[in-house]
Design a protein around this nucleic acid. Structure first.
Length: 585
RNA sequence: GCCGAUAUAGUUUAGUGGUAAAACAGAUCCUUGGUAAGGAUCAGCGGACAGUUCAAUUCUGUCUUUCGGCACCA
């Protein structure tokens, strides 16, 4: 989909459209005060304070009409420059504008405004020449948005829209939005019976259905195999822990808001764990380690529970229970660089297998000013941040640094992707931690016989299995690669009366070779049964009738293709087994 | 959590101040077929709790769910 912010002409057009929106809103709601109206990747929005009034979805049409009216009127958009003093005087009734002016650089004494007819807005520009050029636009949605993005602040009204040069571009864009909705994992997950939710079970607590659990197990086995090859040791730990465990780790202080409330039983207090780092710390502490043992890599497909804000829940992409593909790697300070590189290599090795090519790497660093959130050890932080940075540079992946995004215990690398609908999500993460090992007083005996504290790398490659499944459902639109498909082959006898025996033979042989196969011997028309195999996105459909029975062949149709091929059954069996074994994109 | 919307059959949707419709899926029967929907019959529905009303699925309120955003985040 086109990125509007990065296209020079569209950027200008959308920015001007935001002004047009503001002008229309001012006509309809004279009390309106305006905050900012930036261009974003998907169009533009404007944040507006309407006092006690609220814009509803049904009002968008009225606003659009007013915008069209102003556009037709065709006023010129005129740039005006005034001094800072003049601006302060001109907008003295408008606290939002005053805020914007006061945030400008000391040196900036000249302030530019754009005027169109009866409306003037503070703005750097650039804009199109006249409002007449703003013709093919649509207001998409309205919502609340906190002023300056801070939930302690007042909530303003945000109206989203998009504008194009040509009508057909707008139509194409709106169709693409619809298309994205059809790719949404919540829709596909329901259609293909991957997972379900139920009010009675509870909000944000999805359940995997038989077909979904097959997918789940394949992914679990896949990643565990990879990890085993790399020297990971897998463990299993309980989902409930004594609250003292989390007080020791510091999570109780830093993370309580996101945890289910404490359970008090027989004088003891327990919590549902939001993560399993502390459990793995205790596993490390279970015995004395030598420097020769490090790195020690402890992995777990771990069930965790987080009390996510109700508005944040989103199918299996974000629930209150999820399963992390988690591991904690205990290393010496000297090993940080190499092991971090190993993890990054593993991430991209996995991405290659799944054909994931569109992602954004973020190096999350601490905010040096925020003394409260982050573990206070500047030397450690500096060292850690520098080492991660140097590994990323060495490997040569492009990344962005974000200040203040680090975990309280250390800096991290996040790999983010865009879902079909909604904001960017983190798929993989690797976090450096020099804090927990100290809190749990972990030690290893070094060469010189001295006890030293290791450093920990927290990492998740598939992130959470739940989220990863959501992601690949959207990427594949539900047409999963054969090795992941819950049903890999559908066998359809042309006639259940005459060809059933051979069909059963094919079915049984495939089953014996652990191919996930279904036999459709229902008394339905062939076309009907074929259609169903296609809508369920089954990778291979085998039609068998008289000629196939005679020649011991199968008529193969691959999902998404209308071509068919008659090949010896033995050959098909061999091919599919090889394909599944490869597990490659 | 906040702002707004939303809730009808297993699913996707229609409709109504007088107890509800269709398609697909399901069951039974007929149909015996060559690459995306053969036919007939049957069964199945108003998120919860209040209020207004002779009468509420329909109007109002509260709660809950889901969705779009904000904030938060694997």
């Amino acid at each position: 989909m086109i990125n509007i912010k990065e296209d020079e002409r569209l950027n200008k057009l959308n920015h001007s459209c935001a002004h047009l929106l503001a002008q229309a809103v001012k006509h309809l709601y004279p009390q309106a005060k305006f905050w900012v109206g930036p261009v974003i990747d998907t169009g533009f929005y404007y944040d507006i304070d309407l006092g006690d009034q609220v814009v509803k979805e049904e009002d968008l049409e009225t606003i659009e009409k007013e915008m069209k009216k102003i556009s037709k009127d065709g006023k010129k958009i005129i740039r005006e420059e005034i001094s800072k003093e003049e601006a302060l005087e001109k907008f003295k009734e408008d606290p939002y504008k005053l805020d914007l002016i006061s945030r400008m650089n000391e040196e900036e004494q000249i302030i530019s405004c754009y005027r169109q007819g009866d409306f003037t807005d503070l703005c750097r520009g650039p804009h199109v020449e006249t409002v007449k050029e703003i013709k093919y636009f649509k207001l998409l949605k309205v919502s609340g948005a906190y002023w300056k993005g801070d939930s302690n602040n007042k909530m303003l009204q945000r109206i989203y829209g998009v504008c194009f040069e040509k009508e057909e571009d707008l139509t194409t864009y709106l169709e693409a939005l619809e298309d994205a909705k059809n790719r949404d994992h919540r829709k596909i997950g329901k259609e293909l019976e991957i997972f379900m939710t139920d009010d009675l079970v509870g909000r944000g607590l999805p359940m995997f259905l038989p077909k979904g659990y097959i997918l789940w197990q394949e992914l679990e086995n896949y990643i565990k195999e990879k990890e085993k090859e790399l020297g990971y040791l897998h463990v299993m730990t309980p989902c409930v822990g004594n609250v003292e465990l989390y007080k020791t780790s510091g999570h109780w202080d830093h993370y309580k808001e996101n945890m289910f409330p404490m359970m008090e039983v027989e004088g003891e207090s327990f919590v549902l764990r939001p993560m399993n780092c502390p459990h793995h710390m205790m596993i490390y502490a279970n015995k004395m380690h030598s420097y020769k043992d490090l790195p020690i890599r402890i992995g777990e497909i771990a069930h965790d529970f987080r009390f996510e804000a109700s508005g944040a829940l989103k199918g299996i992409e974000r629930g209150r229970h999820f399963c992390q593909n988690d591991a904690h790697i205990f290393v010496t300070k000297e090993q940080i660089k190499e092991e971090f590189k190993n993890v990054v290599d593993l991430i991209f090795d996995v991405y290659k297998d799944f054909g994931i090519t569109e992602y954004r790497c973020v190096l999350s660093l601490r905010d040096k000013e925020d003394k409260e959130k982050y573990y206070p050890d500047d030397a450690m932080w500096d060292q850690a941040e520098n080492e991660l940075r140097s590994v990323l540079k060495e490997i040569g992946i492009s990344y962005e640094e974000e200040i203040g995004e680090a975990a309280f215990y250390g800096p991290k690398l996040d790999v983010n992707v865009k879902p079909a609908v909604g904001n960017e999500i983190t798929l993989s993460t690797c976090q450096l931690d020099f804090c927990l090992p100290q809190k749990f007083d972990l030690k290893y005996v070094d060469k010189d016989g001295e006890k030293k504290t290791p450093v920990v790398l927290h990492r998740a490659i598939l992130g959470s299995l739940d989220r990863f499944i959501a992601y690949i459902l959207e990427e594949t639109k539900g047409a999963l690669p054969t090795w992941l498909a819950p049903v890999q082959v559908k066998v359809i006898p042309v006639s259940s009366e005459y060809h059933l025996e051979y069909a059963k033979e094919v079915f049984k042989t495939l089953k014996k070779h652990e191919i996930r196969v279904e036999l459709d011997d229902r008394n339905e028309k062939l076309g009907y049964r074929l259609r169903e195999a296609q809508t369920k996105k089954i990778p291979y459909t085998l039609v068998v009738g008289a000629s196939e029975e005679e020649a011991k062949t199968v008529n193969v149709r691959k999902y998404g293709s209308i071509e068919t091929e008659e090949i010896p059954f033995e050959k098909f069996l061999q091919n599919i087994k090889e394909e599944i074994k490869k597990k490659r994109h």
